[in-house]
């Protein structure tokens, strides 16, 4: 009974949650009314165009900024008031990391390792060697790609239960990117950790994500399992004469120069496409994630 209570106390809420989250800088609204629950064990890819508010959302989720409206929670605790017990369980890598540039990589790991009770020295050492990162060079003297990889090793070495990565692949070459995705996949498999990463490189998402969230102009347009994006959504193209009969779509609708229309449609609760899809002359395209992204975000 005690063990059960303790277990419940340890995991009282989802790793990350936001309620009616809104934020703005100097008059410009960056996030509007975001509701988000990220389930334990999921790998969420946060996708959106440049300036969609991805970084701001991630920072707000972790309590790194004070949102204008709403609140965010980390493992059930308000993000702005988390305690050391929760801090030990999370790791965050910002975009273009530059922290502690005046220390060597070895010094930085030595420093950070003292604070994380589960710090995995062997993993840090081996991965630095495997990824060919110089431990005795000043962090500030590394190239952006090297810095990003060092930060990723740092984040993974603390054995987090929640890993938040802001554009982790942006500065990485394809080989390093694959290495990172593999590491994320294995962690998710073995340790059951929750991963949230933002990206605009869609193929990364398709490999490793279990869920995706579309952020567009500060709003969350879509949040679903990644396979659903391919099975539940499609693009319907209607010729000019059928344009007015296009189904009402909230996700995306584009009119073309010749009067034809394409809309993003969704299967209903019984897994059927809207009736309009069966009309002669219309075309139904199952979309890859990248095409769906373009269709929605344009």
């Amino acid at each position: 009974m005690n063990a059960m209570l303790k277990d419940a106390a340890d995991r009282p809420g989802p790793p990350l949650a936001a309620r009616d989250l809104g934020h703005g800088y100097e008059g410009a609204t960056v996030l509007r009314g975001i509701d988000l629950d990220i389930a334990a064990g999921s790998v969420l890819g946060l996708i959106g165009r440049n300036g969609a508010g991805k970084s701001t959302l991630l920072r707000a989720l972790l309590g790194l900024l004070e949102p204008t409206t709403g609140e965010t929670r980390v493992f059930g605790k308000p993000a702005l008031a988390m305690d050391d017990g929760i801090r030990q369980r999370i790791a965050y890598v910002p975009q273009q990391p530059e922290a502690l540039a005046w220390l060597t990589v070895a010094q930085m790991f030595d420093y950070l390792g003292r604070f994380y009770p589960r710090w995995n020295h062997a993993f840090a050492r081996d991965t630095l060697a495997r990824w060919q990162l110089p431990a005795n060079k000043l962090f500030g003297k590394l190239s952006p790609g090297e810095r990003q990889r060092v930060e990723l090793v740092r984040a993974l070495a603390s054995e987090p239960e929640l890993l938040v990565l802001d554009e982790p692949a942006a500065a990485l070459d394809p080989v390093a990117r694959r290495e990172l995705l593999r590491e994320i996949a294995l962690r998710a498999c073995e340790a059951g950790i929750t991963v949230v990463f933002s990206t605009h490189i869609v193929s990364d998402l398709e490999r490793v994500a279990s869920d995706i969230a579309f952020l567009h102009q500060g709003r969350l347009l879509l949040h679903c399992p990644v396979d659903d994006t391919k099975e539940r959504y499609a693009r319907l193209w209607l010729p000019a004469r059928l344009g007015p009969h296009a189904p009402a779509s909230t996700l995306g609708r584009r009119s073309h120069a010749d009067g034809s229309v394409s809309v993003v449609i969704e299967r209903d609760a019984h897994g059927r496409w809207p009736d309009e899809a069966a009309q002669p002359g219309v075309r139904l395209d199952v979309l890859g994630l990248e095409d769906l992204f373009v269709e929605i975000a344009e």
Partner: peptide, 18 residues
């Protein structure tokens, strides 16, 4: 194993399980 497939292709293990 699910792990091997996931690791080799760098894909989510849940996808392989499914």
């Amino acid at each position: 194993s699910v792990r091997d497939v996931a690791a080799f292709h760098a894909i989510n293990p849940m996808t392989v399980s499914r």
